[in-house]
Design a protein around this nucleic acid. Structure first.
Lengths: 232, 232
DNA sequence: GCGCGTCTGTGCGCTACCGAACTTTAGAAA
DNA sequence: TTTCTAAAGTTCGGTAGCGCACAGACGCGC
């Protein structure tokens, strides 16, 4: 346990409270493409991503799924258990492989009951997630593909803590709910402006500032505040 | 207190728990156009609509606000207090005038602490609201104006418990995040199909089944379940 | 080096919706 | 009755994104 706590939700808990929780946490590696929850299916475990990233998707009839939220080390999966709801409203798909901490649903409930700091952190995160989903809703409604792509890349960078990651246009098109060609057009436009570069699934953000300027204000608004701020 | 409890969230609480809460509830009349909360502003009171309806709106830069949710007698406003958050992420605008029950934020917190049935009902509603917002996000992304209008009319009917209500095209256009002309076109199409009729702000749903067929599946999915089901 | 599958780029006609202006009509007020 | 205003209807050019189809291009395995 000497290492830094990599999940910010856990890191923001009082030391003692975290130490009470730590033995129950099970380190796991999330693999790309893994489905943690299906939509409306039971939540058997909660996950605290450390260096991984998970998309929240909603199935829509006659369409591919749309992404409504993105969870990384700033958050958790299965927070609805904190509301006493044992099933996930959305599908959770591992988007960036990496480490996470896992806990059984029963264990999580137990910890919530005896650990008020955890309960507070979880509640605060539920609220932050609602804001994120709300903002995404508005953004998807009003903003052009290029701006939304820029936002998505920045959100991914924040959660992966890296400006290089793997992601094909095909995949991005599902995330943004547009055609693959739409992504190709937006991505090559961003590349022409020297904001990113990419080849065959390897994306590299070259100019963070420029990319922020290319995306809509939603990025700044929906940025999940540091967990420490959540608890203040 | 002999009358039926008109807010379903309250009605679903155990009799004893409700009776403990009832004296603190302050009957108020919400007037059309009243703003209960501004976005990101403090929540001073919570509201349980009885025969009124309130829109949840998100401000978007360079645009009118977009609606992300709709609250009627099946829900409440200010539920985020149940998460320990004292400000509203969205703007709450009274959409359908009518009666509601009001409670101060402090009083609500007090009741939550001593009344587990209320806490459970509130948590369940928060979850239902998240689902509604999520579904709205996806619906706004994929479905055509006519289907979204049909959905909105049905949701309004459910919350107002009436198939007649007042609502101008101008106003609807803000709710749906489209031009007024877009609403006019969609509405006259629905009228031509004899599903609704309207004149100068008076809308009348003629054919519920037909209207449900004209709208997307989102309506059925995002329908907030009866509060009694929420608690089961 | 060859073949093949995956990823990316291009072209084309089409539709829903936009922005902006203008007209008509219902109904309340004078 | 006349006047006035808010609501609803119409028109028109423009565009973002769609569906579909196909063409290169990179990289891996053999």
């Amino acid at each position: 346990m000497g290492r830094a706590i990599q999940n910010e939700l856990l890191a923001a808990m009082p030391r003692k409270a975290y130490e009470a929780l730590a033995p129950a946490l099970d380190p796991v590696t999330l693999v790309f493409g893994e489905v943690l929850y299906e939509a409306d299916a039971p939540v058997t475990h909660v996950y605290f991503p450390c260096e991984s990233m998970v998309s929240l998707l909603l199935p829509v009839e006659h369409h591919f799924d749309v992404e409504v939220g993105l969870v990384g080390s700033e958050g958790m999966l299965g927070a609805s258990l904190g509301l006493g709801i044992a099933h996930s409203p959305v599908k959770a798909l591992v988007q960036g492989a990496g480490s996470a901490l896992r806990l059984s649903a029963a264990g999580f409930r137990r910890e919530l009951a005896r650990n008020p700091a955890l309960a507070r952190a979880v509640n605060a995160y539920i609220h932050a997630l609602m804001k994120q989903i709300t903002q995404t809703a508005a953004c998807n409604r009003f903003h052009v593909v290029e701006a939304r792509l820029a936002r998505w890349l920045l959100m991914t960078r924040d959660r992966m803590r890296s400006s290089k990651f793997r992601m094909t246009h095909e995949f991005l098109s599902h995330m943004l709910g547009v055609r693959r060609v739409g992504v190709t057009e937006a991505a090559s436009s961003l590349q022409r402006k020297k904001l990113i570069e990419y080849t065959r699934g390897n994306i590299h953000i070259l100019d963070d500032r420029g990319l922020e300027a290319a995306c809509c204000g939603c990025y700044g608004i929906a940025k999940v505040p540091a967990a420490s701020a959540l608890l203040s």
